[in-house]
């Protein structure tokens, strides 16, 4: 009997697991380990009508929206700080302002709790009262109900979130699909993986089966559907212990994305004309690699 092997090329991963109209949850936060190689491949594959659920990972969302892959974005914060100041997500903004995408605005804790409900296999989950926020008037799927245990208390319920696909970039995997994410406490990534129906992971390296110590397995293989080996798969964002933010490239993108023409030129030069992430990274120059700083001044 042949052993299970979930390794495939990134192109196969996207073609097999990201059909048009998929609802995709993007992992990563601000400038930390956004699944950028997978995002670029989705753009090259010309996926359409995707519904994005986003952690605060604006750069990935902005490029998918600008490339015309997206009909809906559910989010609670898009943008991040750079040396040049606050990077606002300009293709997303324009699309939202002209109504070419559906905007589902939420808040961090509501998305987190909705993913927990998805992971726990329950239909909805209550949050502490946050009435007074106008989010409740635009999110008609969030309901105010009296607590069944103390009718003086109001709770806000949010429906479980069960996205079709999770896109994650991590450090290592074995061929069965055990995933190691080298961060001190990556437990919410496991919850997210449990909530999503297909879990797609790009990794920096493939390790021998059985070589990941049990306590270093962030997501166990039976929750994972596909693995692709993509070194620098988070570039131009950073990956803990591996490489830094590629600040110049991001600054160039922010400049280009001010206009549709600028974005289109960027898209052609850095995504469509690159065959894969290796090509892209070669073109922009390798991101500065991780230098272990003296951890404190204490």
């Amino acid at each position: 009997m042949s052993r299970e092997n979930k390794i495939m090329s990134l192109r196969e991963m996207v073609q097999n697991f990201v059909p048009d109209q998929s609802r995709i949850y993007l992992e990563g936060l601000l400038v930390n380990r956004l699944p950028m190689a997978a995002v670029h491949e989705i753009i090259r594959s010309k996926c359409h009508q995707l519904r994005i659920v986003s952690a605060p990972n604006g750069l990935a969302v902005d490029q998918l929206v600008g490339a015309g892959c997206v009909t809906e974005v559910e989010f609670y914060f898009l943008g991040f700080m750079t040396e040049q100041g606050f990077a606002s997500m300009q293709r997303f903004r324009t699309a939202a302002e002209t109504g070419t995408i559906r905007v589902k605005e939420s808040m961090g804790y509501a998305i987190v709790m909705a993913l927990r409900a998805g992971a726990y296999g329950i239909p909805f989950i209550p949050l502490p009262d946050f009435r007074g926020s106008d989010l409740l008037s635009i999110r008609t799927d969030y309901r105010e109900i009296p607590s069944p245990y103390n009718t003086n208390d109001i709770v806000i319920t949010v429906p479980a979130l069960r996205p079709d696909v999770l896109l994650l970039h991590a450090h290592s995997a074995d061929e069965r699909g055990n995933i190691f994410l080298d961060e001190p406490w990556p437990n919410f990534t496991l919850t997210t993986a449990q909530a999503c129906q297909k879990v797609l992971v790009t990794v920096e390296e493939i390790v021998e089966p059985g070589s990941l110590p049990v306590h270093r397995i962030t997501i166990p293989h039976f929750l994972v559907d596909a693995i692709a080996l993509v070194p620098y798969g988070a570039t131009p964002t950073a990956l803990n212990q591996r490489y830094e933010v590629h600040a110049n490239h991001i600054a160039g993108y922010q400049d280009a994305a001010k206009t549709e023409e600028g974005f289109d030129k960027f898209l052609e030069e850095f995504i469509l004309s690159c065959f894969n992430q290796r090509d892209f990274v070669k073109k922009i120059g390798l991101p500065p690699s991780w230098t272990r700083t003296q951890s404190s001044n204490k």
């Binding site: 604006g58 989010f75 609670y76 914060f77 898009l78 606002s88 808040m107 961090g108 926020s133 989010l135």
Partner: peptide, 8 residues
């Protein structure tokens, strides 16, 4: 950009 965790 959105209110992040602010409302709660």
């Amino acid at each position: 950009p959105g209110g992040a965790g602010g409302p709660i």
